[in-house]
């Protein structure tokens, strides 16, 4: 295999891992806007171990998963007790905090980052994906996966069924962070050089876009989205500085036309949200369900 093909396959594989990891959180209906932070945590944790302590990469990856999971659980616990808007704000802020901390931490090279990590192989990347896929297949068939879906569907109903929502969602968030951390570790050892700014808001948005483009209903939809978005830029290199504009508009169009992603059933019969909105009378367009009291 040519080095170029190998590099592409590695990149695609890592992005698939990112999308699958993000999907775990999304399957509970919780969107994080700072998942690149868990990637950074995994990348730095693993790089420290392989560079400074000469640990083998697979072991360092496991540690990266654990560290990222702990960070995910802490942030999840802080944010998931609150409303979805708070989750968005807190994860967004967390992303910046992590970037800032790594940039000011001299041990890991500050803003110049770390250099010299190697060892990411196709075997390592694709066996990680295999493990995660097996986990996800089992998850979607289990009562835990059903509980995730219940929380996504209707939290109030879920409390009435006795689901301990915060606990379940924090668990999902930690698992999601762990997979993202592993992807970060692999990315670091493929890139060979990492800086804090690699894991900034643009990377966070990319992770979301991988997952959301394909569709959040099935985990393989997220994987498809990641593959498409990793391969497309190769053909669209001529876009160069229009790149960010296209990406941004992709978000905008996607959210109007298919907020649930390209794969998966449409949200309800009777046309998409746009059609329903247009049909509705402008004055009474805001419908919110409210539980009556008294």
């Amino acid at each position: 295999m040519s080095p170029y093909a190998e590099a592409v396959l590695l990149q695609v594989g890592i992005n698939v891992l990112l999308a699958l990891g993000y999907w775990i959180a999304v399957s509970t209906g919780k969107y994080s806007f700072g998942h690149a932070a868990f990637m950074a945590i995994g990348a730095y944790a693993a790089s420290m171990l392989t560079l400074n302590f000469a640990w083998p990469l697979p072991v360092a990856m496991l540690v990266a998963a654990v560290v990222a999971a702990v960070a995910g659980a802490v942030i999840g616990w802080m944010a998931l007790r609150l409303s979805l808007l708070y989750l968005a704000i807190i994860t967004f802020i967390f992303g910046q905090l992590v970037e800032l901390l790594f940039a000011q931490w001299d041990y890991v090279g500050g803003a110049t980052g770390m250099i010299g990590m190697t060892g990411t192989t196709l075997t390592l990347v694709y066996s990680s994906i295999a493990v995660v896929v097996v986990y996800l297949v089992l998850l979607t068939r289990s009562r835990l996966g059903l509980a995730y879906a219940a929380i996504r569907e209707d939290e109030r109903a879920a409390t009435a069924s006795g689901l301990r929502i915060t606990r379940i969602a924090v668990g999902a968030f930690a698992a999601s962070a762990a997979v993202t951390g592993v992807a970060g570790a692999l990315a670091a050892h493929q890139l060979m050089i990492i800086t804090p700014s690699l894991f900034g808001p643009q990377q966070a948005l990319l992770i979301i876009l991988y997952c959301v483009l394909g569709g959040v209903q099935y985990f393989w939809g997220a994987a498809v989205g990641a593959i498409v978005l990793s391969v497309l830029p190769i053909w669209f290199e001529w876009l160069n500085d229009w790149y960010m504009i296209v990406y941004g508009l992709l978000f905008v169009v996607l959210m109007i036309v298919r907020p649930q992603g390209l794969i998966g059933r449409s949200e309800r019969s009777g046309g998409g949200p746009l059609l329903r909105r247009l049909r509705r009378d402008g004055a009474v367009a805001v419908e919110r369900e409210r539980e009556p009291v008294g």
């Binding site: 009562r143 569907e153 879920a158 009435a160 689901l163």
Partner: peptide, 26 residues
């Protein structure tokens, strides 16, 4: 609930299974 709270996107069977949540290994 007065205005019915189901897991609309899940199947009828899945709704009942979720009712068993506290009695099952989850």
């Amino acid at each position: 609930f007065q205005n019915i709270r189901l897991y609309g996107g899940l199947t009828v069977l899945e709704n009942v299974l979720l009712g068993q949540h506290t009695r099952a290994r989850t």
